[in-house]
Every structure is written in structure tokens, then in C-alpha cells.
Design a protein around this nucleic acid. Structure first.
Lengths: 231, 231
DNA sequence: GCCAAACCGTTCGCTGCCGTACAAATTGCC
DNA sequence: GGCAATTTGTACGGCAGCGAACGGTTTGGC
């Protein structure tokens, strides 16, 4: 444990010596809701280690359609492609729930990564997780119902920000799941009627975790294992 | 270029010195159609560098549902999770089109990977590609029609094995796309009637690439860029 | 040449979600 | 307090794909 003030689980998994390699390059920045960290094609200038909050990795299509393909909170980082040799973002990264991050220049971070085996071990482990998450999401998108995916999303988000209250509109959630807004309205309405969640104008509260897990698809349990291993 | 006999693009991207690091650990093995290289949860014992043929990365669900989330041919490797620190397979890997591969023990491969920066550069670049492919597939599964996805799959497979004849049944293809067999039958029938492909009992022939590309979703073009950069 | 198995084409009713639209409720702002 | 903007509930026709089933065709084994 580097410091009690570091909440990011990749950074806090590093030894103090390894953490020190980043030096002053690591600077705190706020994450505002709706902020676009990267658009498709943007040069990967920064790497963000999320301290609080939540970002969505989205794949967008020419016709404007979009779907979330990954989710990153304090258990991970944004911009890992840099470490793999990438130079531009292939996805859209949007802040879903506000918070803050520690930001470092891509070049500096990659230099530390390339030079230090322990840093590589920690960061590549996260790459494996995000790869598995993306694969799971691909199949989930194909095979599971809106209500299941909604429940999964809420649980995943809740685990990452460690709160049972999530400040987001149905419009946002619909964009994540990749469905119409009214589709979420129906699914969320059903969840609300059965007392599992409460939905108020831009604020969802999870009331019954066990029930929500029962409704969510199996994909959630797998994601939980991944996150718990880190968080 | 290491040797004209090496077809795998990761291995052939290595300098002769780097390639020699693998030594005798790299052994040829046949890839038979339908062969399961890894089931979910299997320990990652081997890494396969595909020389010819094609393998699908599938995510499977408890109820038997499944969907392809990645595709690997001679441009890539199977078992990259090992390099990221993984020990067991989170996906199902099935040989779709037969061929052969060069196989190496996971431990030996990781040792070379950990010790050599150039090897890391080449292999991690592939990890970035497969990550982007998975992300693209996640959104594609959500947003595009069966016929589009069918066309995309055929083109992707054809690019990898570099043949316009693909030996596979509609049953297999349906499992890839994650739909019913009869769904593929309808889509393929339509493609056949318009003269874009020809389908004969376990053998698809692509007749008109331009037309097939026009039918495929935009996801194909992105994948093509990825593969061309390597192949 | 015959039979069983594998593979393919097609159909039917059903359902989950789309696209669209409109009204109600809540909130922020002046 | 009143108005405009945002957010949410709900409804309706339409369609893509499902699940299941059946028959026709090709193939391989004997």
C-alpha cells in the first residue's frame, strides 16, 4: 500500500519504490459527468488512473448508434492501449459518474511500464480483465434481455463507486445498454414496481441487491469476481 | 523475416535473434476443424501461433448460448492471456477452419516475453488488436442485423485464410454469429440469390467481394485495417 | 444401391425491441 | 410564482429474430 490517499487499485498495488517511478508526472484532475476523455481517433495523450467515479468505454457507429463495451472505475485505468503500443483511441471514453483521477502523460507512463517488470505485471493484469469484460459484454449484448442487462449495469456501477445511489438519467443508461430510452423506462419501471430499485429524476437507488442480482444475467457474477480480485 | 516457412505474422515480425529465443520449444501441431483448443476454465498450458487456419474465441453462457467475440488466424496467437498474467482461459477457443499452428509451452513463451522488449512490443500490439476486435464485436452484436454480421464474418474469415472458399456448415456459422441455424439459412439464401456467395453443403464460396462488403456492416472495414497492418 | 445421418430451405406463431409520439411530472431559472 | 427545459411514463404499429417443426437434398458407410 503506497499511501492511504491513493484509491486507485492499480497504483496502490505497486510497491512504494515502483510508485515513486511516476514521480510528479502523476497529477490529480477532476472527472465531470459527461466529460469525454477520448473520442474515436483522438491521440492517446494521457493515461487516467481513476480514483473516484466511473467511465464507460463505448464503441460508436457511423450512424450514431453506440454501445458500451467496457466500464472502468477505481479498479482500473483509461488509456491502457498506450501500453500495448497504440497511439490513438479506438473507442469513445465518457465519464458516467463524476469523481477524480490521477493523470499522467502517455509517454511517461509507457516509459515506466517498459522499464519495470512489476509495473507491467500489475497493468497487464488489468488489461486481461478489461479484455475479458469486453468479451463477456459482446456475448451479453447478443444473448441477454434489456432488463437483465440493466440490472447487470447497475450492479457493476454500484460495485465500482461503492454506493447504492447512482446519479444518472435513463437517457444515459439507455445509451450505455445500447437501447432506446423508453426501453430503459419500461425495464426500470418494472424493477421499481417490484421494489428492487427506486428511480427519481436522474437518481437511481438500489434497494435490494439480492433481488437485483437474481434478475441480472450471469455476466454480473463474472465481473464481480474480476473486480473483487482488485478492489 | 525469419524464414519463408513461417507464416504466422507475429513470429515473422520478430528478428531472427528474437525468434531464436523460442528455440525448440516451438513445435508444429495440426489444427482440426471443430477442435477445442481451450474450454472455459482450462489451464492455459500452451500458446498457439496459427500458421494456417482459423480459430474462434467464443463466450459461452450457462444455458448453452454462445457468441463469437474474437477471431484469430495467422495474424495472431491463441493464449495471449498468459502473457497478461492469466492462468486459465475465460473463453472457449474452437478451430473453425483447419490448418496448423506452432505451439509452445505457456511458461516458456512467457519467459521470453518477460525478458525481451521486442517480443513484448510485437505481442502486445496483437493484444491491442484483439481488444479492439472484441470491443467492436460487442457493439456489432448489439446494433447490426444478421445479414450484415454474416457478411462481415465471411469477409473476416476469408481475409485470414486468404481463400474465397470456406469449408463450414451453416450450423457452425450460426453458432459464431450467435443466432439460430435457420436465421443463417435465410440470410445466406438471400446472399446466394443475389449472386454474392454460393453455398453448397458445408462449403461457402465468396463470388463478389465488393457486393459482400457493401452488405457487411462498417465493422468489417475496421477489422480489415487491423489485419492488413499485420498480414 | 440402400439407408442413415448430416445438412439445408422454409414455414408459422410469438416476443422483445424499435421508432415515434405525446403527455405528465419534476426541476432550474428569472 | 411562473415558465421553460429536462426527465420520465406510456402507448402503438412494425419488424427482426426466436423456437420449433417438417420436408427435401446431399453425403458417407455398408
Amino acid at each position: 500500500m503506497v499511501s492511504p490517499r491513493i484509491h486507485n487499485r492499480l497504483l496502490s498495488a505497486l510497491s512504494p519504490e515502483d510508485f515513486a517511478l511516476f514521480g510528479d508526472d502523476l497529477r490529480p484532475v477532476p472527472l465531470d459527468q459527461g466529460q469525454v476523455l477520448y473520442a474515436v481517433g483522438d491521440p492517446l495523450k494521457w493515461i487516467y488512473f481513476i480514483e473516484h467515479g466511473l467511465a464507460s468505454v463505448m464503441t460508436t457507429m457511423e450512424d450514431g448508434g453506440a454501445s458500451e463495451v467496457g466500464m472502468v472505475g477505481p479498479e482500473g485505468m483509461i488509456g491502457a492501449s498506450v501500453l500495448l503500443g497504440g497511439t490513438v483511441s479506438a473507442q469513445h471514453i465518457v465519464v458516467q459518474l463524476p469523481g477524480k483521477a490521477l493523470r499522467i502523460g502517455a509517454r511517461e507512463c509507457k516509459a515506466v511500464f517498459d522499464a519495470n517488470a512489476d509495473v507491467r505485471r500489475v497493468m497487464l493484469r488489468f488489461v486481461e480483465d478489461i479484455l475479458n469484460l469486453s468479451a463477456q459484454t459482446a456475448a451479453c449484448n447478443r444473448l441477454h434481455l434489456v432488463e437483465q442487462r440493466c440490472a447487470r449495469w447497475l450492479l457493476m456501477a454500484s460495485d465500482r463507486v461503492q454506493s447504492h445511489v447512482l446519479a444518472l438519467t435513463q437517457e444515459f443508461l439507455a445509451a450505455m445498454i445500447g437501447v432506446r430510452r423508453s426501453g430503459v423506462s419500461e425495464a426500470a419501471g418494472e424493477l421499481q414496481r417490484s421494489g428492487v430499485i427506486r428511480y427519481r429524476r436522474g437518481e437511481i437507488t438500489i434497494l435490494d441487491y439480492a433481488a437485483l442480482q437474481a434478475i441480472a444475467c450471469e455476466c454480473y457474477a463474472l465481473d464481480r469476481e474480476r473486480v473483487e480480485r482488485l478492489l
